[in-house]
Design a protein around this nucleic acid. Structure first.
Lengths: 136, 136
DNA sequence: TATGCACCCTGTAGCAACTACAGGGTCAAG
DNA sequence: CTTGACCCTGTAGTTGCTACAGGGTGCATA
């Protein structure tokens, strides 16, 4: 299949597919006589793996490691689990941080009573960290 | 005060302070005879405002608008409230998205039972979106 | 046959918000 | 007089794409 078809099949931007090839995340496919990229099923499933992992928030480097693992079926699974577990912990940390931040923002927004900027509680709160109830 | 002192006073990297000046977020300060930047209290509180807003996740452009507002005390406060409210909504959306993602990751990680990569449930789940329970 | 249109190619530059040098100058203490 | 901490400018790197510019290919239609 040509790149546009692969793009539709995986929901990946064409430019992104070429980018993945450039950074070595996807192998360079064969070319047609007209120098068009020609993909097979192996490419499609590899790209799906990459997209899915990206959707789950894995970095390109993490995905590289995961792909290395899946390319070598005899290797130990522990490494994949370590990567995924570490990533899960990062996501949980991010959620916790954003939750604090949301609470702080909600408090700031809730204080606006209209009027002019000189009296604006939003601007005042942004200027002075001491108005905050939690660290962030 | 010199840039190092301002850096310590506000918890901002020196390079970041210079970067903010370059993009026009902070006004260029006076210089000493040795061409060192020399800051006053107004700079310090403006930078605190910026840092605090960045910590709360506002973009540089949002902060630019908020600073414009606070520089003009006669202007209406509604704009500040609009910016903050929109940002709060974005943070809430991000939390919701990360929460879905965390649940999916937790399910994937929980399936690892050791062994070799060929049998790895983590790698299998990443390759095939149909294993997922929710959209992400 | 011409021409329009969708599709493909390469290469480079842009985005956000910094961060990290390289290569130099300044200044006070010992 | 030298050591070390500090400061300066300018440029390039980071992450993960995305957006051109400027060109070639392939097929259907007038």
């Amino acid at each position: 299949m040509k790149i546009g078809e692969l793009s539709r099949a995986t929901g990946t931007n064409i430019e992104t597919i070429r980018y993945y090839e450039r950074i070595g995340l996807l192998p360079a496919p064969d070319r047609t006589a007209a120098n068009y990229r020609s993909y097979g099923d192996a490419h499609r499933s590899r790209l799906s793996f990459v997209r899915h992992s990206r959707d789950l928030g894995f970095t390109i480097e993490e995905i590289r490691s995961l792909l290395d693992l899946s390319d070598d079926p005899a290797r130990d699974c522990g490494e994949a689990d370590r990567i995924a577990t570490a990533h899960l912990e990062q996501v949980e940390a991010k959620i916790a941080q954003l939750t604090l931040l949301r609470d702080e923002l909600a408090r700031i927004v809730g204080r606006c009573r209209g009027g002019v900027a000189a009296d604006c509680r939003v601007i005042e709160a942004l200027g002075d960290h001491r108005h905050c109830e939690s660290a962030h």
